[in-house]
Design a protein around this nucleic acid. Structure first.
Lengths: 192, 192, 192, 192
DNA sequence: GACTAAGCGAGACGGTACGTCAAGTCTTGTC
DNA sequence: GACAAGACTTGACGTACCGTCTCGCTTAGTC
């Protein structure tokens, strides 16, 4: 009746080593150049152990992403009552990454990963704080009257992130100014 | 004075065959799965002929992009005087692609190409009519008083495109509604 | 203390298939025209498996040579007491190969292989029975008084083989007569 | 009726440059590694000019060989009346080449060329002074009574050269002693 | 003196093979 | 039975040369 399984169970150490190696190599060399063999060697692990638990390279990145292993910062949106200032807080933490050559490269790599892996694609804007934190704060802004009724908060957040990504893809080096003016335009005071 | 080079000249037929094959295979199988060997075979051409003129897979896609070989439509923004309607015209031509499973896949592939090739990245928003057509139309909108002074037209266009790309990366199937409400929100009438 | 290696072990089947394919293709098409890719395809094996175990095309031929896969005959020198007859026995088995268009071509190919690979060069005269069988039989001839004291048996054997090879390189079709008279001259009775 | 040809004739300068480049590259890098493109570049000549006049890489080597461009020495056999001394004279000029690492490598390359090109094969022993000079001298030896009647002079010469080539193929470094004892054995005084 | 017609340097072209890298699967022996 | 190690087939990489084929120039007769 009871389903007894013998033998060792999934090694937590291996999982940890694999994800850590993945994050390290991803940041260092980008998504292309990220290879299963390279991860296995870096992690001191057999290839089969990776294939046993993850279906693809992208799935590893997705796991790193939800574990927050790819960025050292937290993408939270504070709520001080001042909508513009709060959103700019979040924006600045993004710009600190994206307005840097290495950070922009990591972001492009992440986009590449999102493009070929559903898991990464699904979690990308969530992990960057857009779908929850930012959207929620915008919703509060509507209640406060700082944004018009009917503001499409989810897609608005994605537009802001999308603009940043477009700039990174276009190898624009100076994102801070344009992104700030975009956000100020979008969140401009509701006309009285 | 004039710099004379002798010898055979670049074969226009080969160039045409290569770009046509590239576009065909890109649309059919996506950016990953796009191989130089595959293109060479499809085009009936030696690999070296490709490497002689293009430094990378991405450069081929960039050339296809600027030649307009990847999409059958033109991304123009009309000017009827009605800003919202004109922008929605452009938006609909984008949605006709992106709100389709195959079209969304092509768009993701294009993003992947942009992520690893500077040339594609640079031309992406241009080729989709954002940096010129759309930005110009928005600028006219400012002059007409339909948009506030100081509207950051370039980055605003990229935000719209970026939102669509984020939806495609997130494998959202229904883009039409959210994108239309985003555009209506962004171009909402200036309060009198 | 004991050096334990884990993991899969070298596939004997692959080794066999590779060497068999090499011998087959070598005999059929010659040393130039012998390609690693061709061997891999013929053997139903990945190229990497060949490169993993052999450093070069020549090393494959060397292995075939020491395994006796290139010739169906054995180059032994009998010892009936009659030196000339015994050596002619060996000579005839060589001539059966070399005085044939195909056989001469194989011999030329083998020389080409010996010219660019140390392994083949080292084993060539051994494998044709010259350095051991023939030299030993000549040494016996000295003891029997059929050859003068001080006869340099090793280099004498190589001279006989070398003469045959020179004829093959010179595309001489009729080797039997000249080689027989050479051997008779070299082994002419010691004057009493 | 008369077949009039107009236009420039074959360029002697090009022929010279090509053969000089061939000899240079052959000596420097060996027969494999000798490429038509390399020769063309080294000679400052178009590839077609080579293909127009020579059918193959081997034919170029054959031409270099008959022009005496591959060795700086002349392989003549003097006639002082002392057969052994005369033949050793020739032998020493060969050993000066062959008993040297570079010289042995060139000889092996020459053998490789002979193995895949009929022209080289045909002229090899001629160009090294074996078929004419050495054979003739041996014939004189017969007339002088220094060699027995019926000595097969042509194949005997090829045996001597062949022994040297076998040593070179076997990567034997010390050829001088064995070759000298071989020659002394072969030309040992006719028993009175 | 214009007009062929070839030789020539240069090098693009369709191919074949090179030797390397990584994919994903399978096998072996240890824990 | 999970694991580290690593051999296996497959397929693509980017490079080197092959031998053929234009190009535009220069040079030698012929008309």
């Amino acid at each position: 009746m009871n389903e007894h399984r013998t033998g060792p169970v999934r090694s937590a150490a291996a999982r940890e080593a694999i994800l850590a190696a993945t994050a390290r190599l991803f940041q260092r060399h980008g998504y292309d150049h990220l290879t299963i063999e390279g991860i296995a060697k870096e992690a001191g692990v057999g290839k089969q152990t990776i294939y046993r638990w993850w279906p693809s390279r992208g799935a590893l990145i997705a796991d790193c992403l939800v574990d927050g292993r790819l960025f050292s910062v937290n993408f939270v949106v504070p709520d001080t009552g001042d909508l513009l200032r709060d959103v700019e807080e979040w924006l600045n933490s993004m710009l600190a990454i994206v307005d840097t050559p290495d950070g922009a490269a990591i972001m492009r790599s992440l986009v590449a990963a999102a493009a070929d892996d559903t898991g990464v694609g699904n979690h990308l804007s969530v992990s960057l704080g857009v779908d929850r934190e930012l959207a929620d704060r915008l919703a509060v802004g509507i209640r406060d009257g700082q944004l018009p009724e009917g503001t499409p908060v989810e897609v608005l957040g994605q537009a802001i992130l999308g603009a940043m990504i477009m700039q990174a893809l276009g190898r624009k080096n100076e994102q801070t100014m344009p992104m700030q003016s975009l956000v100020r335009f979008l969140l401009r005071p509701v006309a009285g």
